[in-house]
Amino acid sequence: MSEAHDYFTGAQAPVMVPDAGLGSARCDLTVKGMRKSFGKGQLILKGVSFSVHQEETVALIGSNGAGKSTALRCALRLIEPDEGTVDLFGTTISDARQNVLRRSRTDVGFVFQKHNLVPRVSALTNVIHGNLGRSGGPAGWSQLFASRSLRQQALACLERVGLSDHAMKRADQLSGGQSQRVAIARALMQQPRMIVADEPVASLDPVAGQEVMDLFHRLTKEEGITLLFTSHNVQQALDYSDRILAIKRGEIVLDAPSNSLKAEDLNEHYG
């Protein structure tokens, strides 16, 4: 059993399967005992613990409202968790000051379900925004003020997602699939060690969704980027991940290598 599971303290014991030789690999992200509630007693996360190893692709699955998105947001403190610790690349960020937190976040590219591009500005400017964590200020606000090297870097990221010919197109005039690819290019601009993707294909049609997942797969494997993604699609989770975590009613109920699982094993964790 992987060391990463030892700290699990949830009420319901998760199903754990011996990992695929990742026990000694460095953990890029370690979440321990994370709890989060909204409003009066609406407990969304009930002591969630999990880890993601270097260069590993992990799928977090679960039904609507199970706590997937909240877990990801709490892990990067986009939402402040009530309890729990988070180690990101060896730095404990759960109680870190804002400047430390910001520095740690620059190594993580976050891709959202609805891409969250800035509308009315070009795809190129949106990608340049990915560099804001490393170098803020007016030079990073728009391609109008950006240096030549920054523009070239952003264009190269667009090239990697196959959209360099759409660089000057307004973000709100791109299709859903194109927008998500620009969001991935923005994440790549961060030169991330890890990408966290919250249901990245949920709002796309099956073909565009497949393209985006293939793109994730190619980029993460080619460049050794760790990937943590959430999905509703069991088959997609099996196809694209090394390991699967299932979350149900705010608790991790499964943590196992993907090659040891079948779609039927995962379907029971919905509902």
Partner: peptide
């Protein structure tokens, strides 16, 4: 979009 840039360390 603000959340996305915050997540990127902006």
């Amino acid at each position: 979009p603000s959340e996305a840039l915050t997540a990127a360390g902006a």
